[in-house]
Structures are given as structure tokens and as C-alpha cells.
Simulated assay, not measured.
Amino acid sequence: MRTLYLDCFSGISGDMFIGALIDAGGDSTLLEEELQKLNICEEYKLSWIKVVKNGISSTKFDVELTETVDHAGGHQHDHKHNHKHEDVDHNHEHEHSDHHEHSHHHHHSHRSYQDIVKLIDGSQLSQEVKETSLSIFRKIGEAEGLIHGISLEKVHFHEVGAVDSIIDIVGASILINKLEIQKIKSSPVCVGAGKVHIDHGIYPIPAPATLEILKGVPLQQSNIKSELTTPTGAAIVSVLSEEFCTVPSMTVQSVGYGAGTKDFDKHPNVLRVIIGEEN
């Protein structure tokens, strides 16, 4: 049984997950080609580079947004801006003090849950990839709806609906499919500690939507005062993991490290993935 084990000792985000799978042998060129089936490739550029985190060589995956039409009002952007300046695929609730950045985020924040479902359903992606992607998005949509007290149909994804999260979730589904993963297991999930600034004020970490998504998932205590797990990362691990445990009995075939952007003194900020044959 070909198993993927997620070692979330420094949390998990969508871009860390994709970085780790590429690092473990996932085909980045094929990933790029498959993502073109969403027909939004004029909205982004992908990059993946090797970085060293506290002595560990890892892959940093990024989605850079390019000229984009605002889905609410048709504004055009001519600038390019690297959307992921943290190790998160942006918590949808983060508030940004930088005005330029805040307005930029705003213009990417109007894809509704329904829009995303139509986008994925209407694509030429394989049925398995569609189903995996939609189940992850549904998990986030339901959590958002619950937190804000609205129905799934009324959920408008904020940053979570931005292009980078669509890429992270669909990209994750593509790589799992192409790596022929049959089973996914995970360690307990590290979420970090401290507080986070979100649209409605200052909240404890994990942010409300992240915590809602992680219901039923064992969390791991951490003294790191930072948000280590994002809604997208939480949804990936929550939807896909069949079991939460220490490393299972397996013959290891490949190991990958996906880097976050933040650096911590004595702690490599990476997601480790192990692919192997379970005994």
C-alpha cells in the first residue's frame, strides 16, 4: 500500500504541502501543465526553489499573481506581486497594514464557493482530482459558513478563494494523484501559539476557521508564537488523512521537505513528507 505520511511538526499550509511533494519527487512540470486545465493561467505564475531552513534543504513553492480581473467589478491590475510573503497560503482572515497589499488582496477576494465549484467541475481535470479538490474546498466552505453564521451557498471566500489557494488545493490533488498515493496518514498537527490579527480583531491562534476545520484532528502543542497551520493546510490534512499516528511501519521510498517563509531560531519551518510502502 503506497502511503504518504505527513510530519506536521511545524504545521502545514497549502504551499508547504506542494513544496514537500515536489521535493519528494512530484513532477513540477506536469503539475504546471495539469493546472492549465483550470483556464486561469493568465492570473498567476508558479515558482519553486531550493532553500535551506536551519540546515535542512527544502523546496519553497510560490504562487505569484499577475494581471488579474477582479471578479466583483472588473478592475485591472498591471503590477505583479508575490502573494505569499509568509509561510501561509494566507489565512483568509489576516489583516494587512500595508495599504497597497490590502487593496491587492481585496481584488482577489470575490470568488464565491459556487464559482470555485464551477471552475473545478468545468475543467478537463481527471475525476479523481476534481473530487479531491472539491472535498477540500467544501471543508473550508463549511467552516467559513459556520464561523460567519451563513449557508455554504452564501460563502464568499476571502483570501482562501484567491487564486493561490485554488492552485494550492488543486495542485495538491494533482500531485497526490500522479504520485499514486493510496493512503495518507499524518502526525498530530502543530498549530502554533500566540495571537493573530484578523479582520474582526485580535484572536488566539489557531484562527477560528482553522480550528473549526481541525475538529477531530489531534493537535500538537507548540511554544512557537506564530500561526503555523492555515485553513488550506488544515483542510488538506483533515480531509485526506485516514489516521493520525507516529511514522507507520513502512519501507521508505522518498522523503520531501516543503519550506515555509518564516524562520525560527531553533526550529526548521518545514513540512516533512515520507512516501513509502506500508508493511
Rank of each mutant, 00 (worst) to 15 (best):
A259M: 12
G171D: 07
H110G: 04
P208K: 09
G145S: 11
D265S: 15
E42H: 08
K84N: 15
V189Y: 02
Y44W: 10
F17G: 07
S47D: 13
H197A: 08
P248F: 00
D78W: 09
I22S: 04
S13I: 00
L134W: 01
N54T: 07
K139H: 09
G26H: 10
E131Q: 11
D70R: 09
G216F: 03
D87S: 15
I40V: 15
D168V: 08
I169G: 10
Q114P: 02
D15S: 10
N82R: 11
V255Y: 04
I198N: 06
V273K: 07
L228Q: 04
S222T: 04
L134E: 05
V52P: 04
L271S: 02
K80L: 10
M16G: 06
F61Q: 06
D15W: 03
G26R: 08
K215G: 04
D121P: 01
V252G: 01
H106R: 09
I174M: 07
E153Q: 12
T261W: 03
V270Y: 02
L65M: 00
E93K: 08
V170T: 11
Q221A: 14
S109L: 10
D89F: 11
G74K: 13
H267K: 12
F17P: 07
G258L: 02
G256R: 06
F137I: 08
G19I: 06
N223F: 05
T3A: 12
F9W: 03
C8T: 02
G161L: 07
S103H: 15
V69Q: 13
H81R: 14
K130Y: 07
G55T: 10
L175D: 10
I147K: 14
H90R: 10
N177T: 15
V129L: 02
L6G: 01
V191Y: 01
I166F: 11
K183G: 00
S57Q: 06
H100G: 13
V237C: 04
G276T: 03
P204R: 06
I169M: 05
D23M: 01
Y44Q: 05
V129P: 02
E93Y: 01
K262I: 06
S97L: 09
L211Y: 11
V160I: 12
V52N: 13
Q36G: 12
N54F: 04
H94N: 10
H90L: 14
G145F: 03
A72E: 11
I275F: 06
S47E: 11
D168A: 09
E43G: 02
D78I: 13
G256V: 06
M16P: 09
P231C: 09
G233H: 07
L21K: 04
K183F: 11
G201L: 09
S135Q: 13
V160D: 07
V163I: 15
D89P: 03
T210I: 06
V129K: 09
C8H: 01
S186Q: 05
K37Y: 14
A259P: 12
G149Y: 08
K215C: 05
T68I: 09
V51I: 13
H75L: 15
G74E: 08
Q124N: 14
P248Q: 05
H79S: 10
T3M: 13
R111D: 08
M16F: 03
I12P: 01
Q221P: 00
V117D: 01
H106V: 08
L271R: 02
S97V: 07
L46P: 07
H92C: 02
